[in-house]
Amino acid sequence: MNFNLKLVIMKNYLFPHRFKLPGMILFIIGLCLLLLSFFEIYIPDWEVPFPYITYEALFGEREYFVIKEMSLGTILPILLYIIGGLLFGFSKESQEDELINAIRKNSLVWAVYINHIVLLVMLLFIGGFDFFGVIIMSSFSLLLFFIIRFQWKKHQLNTASDEE
């Protein structure tokens, strides 16, 4: 049983379909919180002690294996966004077949291209401290580009095949 389960997971690297909806909800909450904090509209200031492997404060020395306050308001949206996004984007469809698999792979290739094209353009035209923002954004945008493309292609597939 366990061996079979391993084989299934390795075969397509996808989560079971039941994770799709919870993933979507987490992803949307995470995305909204990220956008709110990115545009500095609302940043929750919850802080919790957390064991860090390394910690370097601004203008401070690097410390190892210390317990410091972690800004949960900054980390939580990222956690929700990444975990939710992975579950939403990589859970099986209700009817998972080779066409959906092909669409998923194509969307992923498309997203990698777009993400890096955007990064290249920004690298050239956005300078100074703003470029840090670009790098941070670029590490999250791949998942977003992939999810948008995949959902759009699935929508196109459903609407194009309405007539029999």
Binding site: Q95, D97, E98, L99, N158, A160, S161
Partner: peptide, 22 residues
């Protein structure tokens, strides 16, 4: 054959070439 109706539709229209197995 355990696929979606959309898959049959796209194969019929010649938009998608199925695997040997399918």
């Amino acid at each position: 054959i355990q696929v979606s109706r959309q898959t049959i539709n796209t194969i019929e229209k010649g938009k998608y070439v199925p695997s040997t197995l399918l």
